[in-house]
Design a protein around this nucleic acid. Structure first.
Lengths: 260, 260
DNA sequence: GGATACACGG
DNA sequence: CCGTGTATCC
């Protein structure tokens, strides 16, 4: 089974890229982030024609996540509230979470807040969001211990996940509080699928549109598959496919694929 | 000598269409309207490489007129104030007028206000603008009696200049006050070059982008060459070239060409 | 730098 | 329907 995660930065703009990629890479599950469209306007048919079932948590303009899967998912829910019944409903307004179960594996597709700048209001929101996520995961783990949690985490955990032309100190996506919040989540029992197979740095999943970052390979590895122990053992590969990032009008992110 | 008028609806968007058209139709003079760009950002070189001299009266976002000519123009001025020294300077804010002389012929390139809806503030502005234009022309006629006044007049003078799917009564571009204001201008001694050669209706220079107007030929003839008697006598042809309107991402107007 | 929405002019 | 700007987000 292959599961991919890809921040597509607008599914309507990227439709052809994503369809073409799926034809070349017929993964079992595709988790998308930043679809930037309400469910009614999601371009369903091109994906349904490829045999995918669609599970959407869309929103106008911003955010929005979707899971496409060849087999339909079971036990699908969106947002934190479906699981974390005591959480404030505001945590569901931004569409950043969708989950479902396939072959006994719970897939959790996340679009972690970007956080703007360290110390900003959005940064505080990101840290609080990660804390809510941790509580959410604790509950899910109790019922479905096999979890593939993937998506755009907007956090690079190690120096080798970031190109060297940036001052990482107190940089958004690299600050210690963000990293610690993510480590606290991983401590629930998740491991980075990519690092099972690749230890060296210089592998990235996101390159800023500005300053010709991709051409100069000034990237960040911020899109991840985090696996619970059983799945981590079973993982056979985890790769980043940078080919779609080379197309015209690309997403700023590349897809990351894990295989079991 | 061939003189063309074309409302290009943004020269930056239409650059390739206009360049291609000039290569196929190497007119001596091209009068453009709605260039929608300040002079500093006008794409000069593609036209200069074709041998054209550029005379610009551009503005940000809206309006803007330009004359391109193989021979440089003499006595170029923009706006009403250069000639009508007593007019309020507000009449020069919207860039709708540019003029110059070539081979003893004064070319006046106009973008007449659209007028929005009959009775609106913009409509009153259009009528007052036409009145100022008349005073302006009176002065120019005294020094240069041979005038080719062309451009987007946003007025169709006769029923046969308008398709029949529209109720012309009190319609913008066809209302009696607009037509009378234009007739008052033509009474200074101008004649419609197009009507020297073609008397039947059904020839249009503008089709609304909406409602598939071009496909259904629901057009208006609102782009004109008005000539003083000597030039009118010398006119050999006046045609509308609808081919660029068939391209993808076309201007809503077609070029009109007069030949002496 | 590239995506979104919205307002305005036509 | 098709341009142009502005603002917001990343």
């Amino acid at each position: 089974m292959k599961i991919a995660t890809w921040n597509v930065n607008s599914i309507r703009i990227r439709l052809q890229h994503v369809v073409d990629w799926l034809i070349q890479n017929p993964v079992d599950v595709l988790c998308m982030q930043e679809i930037k469209v309400v469910d009614e306007n999601f371009p369903r048919s091109p994906f349904e024609e490829l045999g995918y079932h669609l599970h959407l948590a869309g929103q106008k303009s911003y955010n929005g996540v979707a899971i496409l899967s060849l087999k339909p998912l079971q036990d699908v829910s969106t947002g934190f509230s479906a699981t974390l019944t005591e959480v404030a409903p505001e945590w569901n307004e931004q569409k950043r979470v969708i989950t479902g179960v396939i072959d006994g594996i719970r897939i959790i597709n996340l679009y972690v807040p970007n956080g703007a700048a360290v110390g900003s209001e959005k940064y505080e929101y990101k840290l609080r969001w990660l804390n809510v996520l941790r509580e959410y995961l604790q509950i899910l783990l109790a019922s479905t211990p096999n979890i593939c949690m993937c998506g755009d985490f907007n956090i690079a955990l190690e120096a080798k996940d970031i190109h060297e032309k940036v001052n990482t100190e107190n940089h958004i996506m690299a600050s210690e509080p963000e990293r610690q919040a993510l480590r606290d989540i991983l401590a629930l029992g998740f491991s980075d699928a990519f690092r099972k197979f690749t230890t060296e740095g210089g592998h990235y999943s996101w390159w800023d549109y500005r300053a010709a970052s991709f051409r100069r390979n000034l990237g960040w590895r911020i899109d991840h598959h985090y696996l619970t122990p059983n799945l981590y053992e079973r993982a056979k590969s985890c790769t980043i496919d940078i080919t779609p990032r080379k197309l015209t009008q690309p997403s700023d992110h590349a897809p990351v694929i894990v295989e079991f």
